[in-house]
């Protein structure tokens, strides 16, 4: 089990791995599909996100609870 942990690579390294060549074709396709999905999602989020982020975040004040 511990071995699995040690094999872990930091997120930043993994990302650059995926971006560079040496990736099999199906993986690239999956990657592109994911990217397309993420693009669609970001389009949607641009529409859904509160229009005035500054005011929204400023007005989001809560009292401590519990």
């Amino acid at each position: 089990m511990a071995e699995r942990v040690h094999k872990q690579t930091p997120a930043s390294e993994r990302r650059s791995d995926a971006d560079t060549e040496n990736v099999a074709v199906p993986v690239t396709e999956t990657g592109e599909k994911l990217k397309a999905e993420l693009d669609d999602l970001l389009d949607e989020i641009d529409e859904v996100l509160e229009t005035n982020a500054e005011d929204f975040v400023k007005s989001y004040i809560q009292k401590g609870g519990e």
């Binding site: 975040v57 989001y60 004040i61 809560q62 009292k63 401590g64 609870g65 519990e66």
Partner: peptide, 9 residues
């Protein structure tokens, strides 16, 4: 949390 130091559980 409200991002301003107030938390609720």
């Amino acid at each position: 949390s409200d991002g301003k130091g107030n938390s609720y559980g």
